[in-house]
């Protein structure tokens, strides 16, 4: 049995560990933190929205990302909500909507009436939008926790607050430590988010509000929570959210529905997404033989299943060759 050490318990490490364990490897996960969370994955939106993302991403995000919902559903049944994505813009930003529609596919145009049918709380607020019926979403925190439970049940060993572990006890190291990994090609893209709670609005699906400068998305979660995200700043600073970013996110949420003005701010967060120059993730084999999964950028939950599969293929095919 192949003994594999996976470094990092973010979404890349956990999905990678699952794929390896499912194929029969004996997996140990080493995480520097004392618990799941505190990493960029914990702050993610959890939208599995390859077609929307295509607006500003390469086609690979669609080809790699469209299998993601099925992978999550297969791995953790009941986790994925299949309700599509609604994209709206205010009347003065009609050209943003036209641009978004031209850059993406698998959507239908929706008018005021259709928007109201999809999201009754947004009735009368937007005259036009786009509906991506094939997209899905999940709660990243529930997903990470459920994945840990499942991995434990599969016999995967977790080492929290792990220091440097000698690779000698393992046949293979898979490094999924994101920005902690010294890789010259990687850069950090800072993202800030907040969690709101209000009983005055309910949404059935992620809603993206287009704006020339401050596009945002709001993802509904259990217990009247809403995740509002996310800024994109070329920086690897992971300090607290700035007042400016907080104002922008709150303004946009308020513009989507004024009831968000009365919502409780449950949490704010800031993290640094690891990204390669083309903003696409990579599975690489390092000179020392270790495999790395990194550069998931803003597509952790969307693209980690495809990366996990690639890493497992690399590991098992390479061992077959040996």
């Amino acid at each position: 049995m192949r003994r594999v050490l996976v470094k990092g318990a973010g979404v890349a490490g956990l999905t990678g560990a699952h794929e390896l364990a499912a194929r029969g490897a004996s997996v140990t996960i080493a995480e520097i933190r004392s618990h799941i969370g505190g990493n960029p994955s914990w702050l993610a939106g959890g939208m599995l929205a390859p077609w929307c993302e295509r607006e500003s991403a390469e086609e690979a995000v669609v080809t790699l990302g469209k299998v993601s919902a099925d992978w999550w559903e297969r791995t953790l049944p009941g986790l994925v909500t299949r309700a599509g994505t609604l994209v709206v813009g205010h009347a003065r930003d009609a050209s943003e909507l036209a641009r978004f529609a031209a850059r993406t596919r698998n959507h239908e145009s929706v008018d005021e009436e259709a928007i109201a049918a999809l999201e009754p709380n947004l009735a009368g607020r937007f005259r036009q939008g786009l509906f991506f019926a094939g997209e899905t979403h999940l709660d990243p925190r529930r997903a990470l926790e459920a994945l840990v439970d499942k991995l434990r049940a599969m016999g995967v060993v977790f080492l929290f607050e792990a220091g440097e572990i000698a690779p000698s006890g393992f046949d293979q190291v898979v490094d999924c430590t994101g920005m902690a990994r010294a890789d010259d090609d990687l850069r950090g893209v800072r993202g800030e988010m907040l969690l709101l709670r209000t009983r005055d609005v309910s949404l059935a699906r992620p809603v993206r509000l287009l704006h020339p400068r401050h596009p945002i998305y709001i993802v509904p979660r259990a217990d009247h929570h809403f995740m509002v995200g996310a800024t994109m700043i070329e920086s690897d600073h992971d300090g607290p959210i700035t007042a400016r970013s907080l104002m922008e996110l709150l303004n946009a949420a308020y513009a989507l529905h004024p009831a968000f003005g009365e919502a409780e701010i449950v949490e704010t967060g800031a993290g640094v997404r690891p990204a390669y120059p083309d903003n696409l993730p990579r599975v690489k084999r390092r000179k020392d033989g270790a495999i790395t999964i990194n550069g998931l950028y803003r597509h952790g939950f969307l693209l980690s299943p495809a990366m996990a599969t690639q890493a497992a293929d690399l590991l098992f095919n390479a061992s077959a060759d040996n």
Partner: peptide, 15 residues
């Protein structure tokens, strides 16, 4: 906006 503290945007600037 690239600042957000210290040498944080260094990677983008060197790019």
């Amino acid at each position: 906006r690239e600042m957000a503290g210290g040498k944080a945007g260094e990677k983008f600037w060197s790019l």
